[in-house]
């Protein structure tokens, strides 16, 4: 009896572990190549907000406030410059067609088109939105990665 249960457990584990089918591969959340720069930007804005607040409650002298603010703005500007450089490098604005991500090799690469000002279009169902959304408001599929 014990032997039967043991065999069943062993077979179940092996089947579960090795039986990965193509459709079991996870669809990775689209990752922006700018994620780390956005992160940096967020950190600087966060710092600026804190700085403003501390200045307003009177923890900082005028001089400290101004010089730190200037430093932060400089840093921010250099991050923005880096973003632009990166954009130019990978041809985000339609110059070079992007390459499919490695993890997505199993699926067909999504067509990428670039046109600003039109709005954001869901690649799955085609709904249009005024602002950038992480997920489509109509069909709920992720749409951060692609817009028309």
């Amino acid at each position: 009896m014990i032997i039967v249960i043991a065999c069943i457990i062993a077979i179940a584990v092996i089947a579960f572990v090795l039986g990965v089918r193509g459709k079991d591969l996870p669809q990775p959340e689209p990752e922006s190549p700018f994620a780390h720069l956005d992160e940096k930007k967020a950190a600087i804005y966060d710092n600026l907000r804190d700085l403003q607040f501390e200045y307003r409650v009177g923890k900082l002298s005028e001089q400290d406030y101004q010089s730190t603010k200037r430093d932060l703005q400089k840093e921010l500007a250099s991050v923005l410059a880096e973003v632009d450089r990166l954009k130019g490098q990978i041809g985000v604005n339609g110059a070079v067609p992007p390459v499919a991500a490695v993890a997505q090799a199993a699926r067909p690469a999504q067509p990428a088109a670039a046109a600003k000002e039109i709005g954001f279009v869901c690649p799955s169902c085609g709904s249009k939105f005024d602002q950038e959304l992480k997920f489509c408001g109509e069909c709920g599929k992720p749409m951060k990665a692609a817009k028309a």
Partner: peptide, 13 residues
């Protein structure tokens, strides 16, 4: 946020 277009091979970027 930086606007991202298309799925990009991040290793190259």
């Amino acid at each position: 946020r930086t606007q991202v277009l298309g799925v990009v091979n991040r290793n190259a970027t």
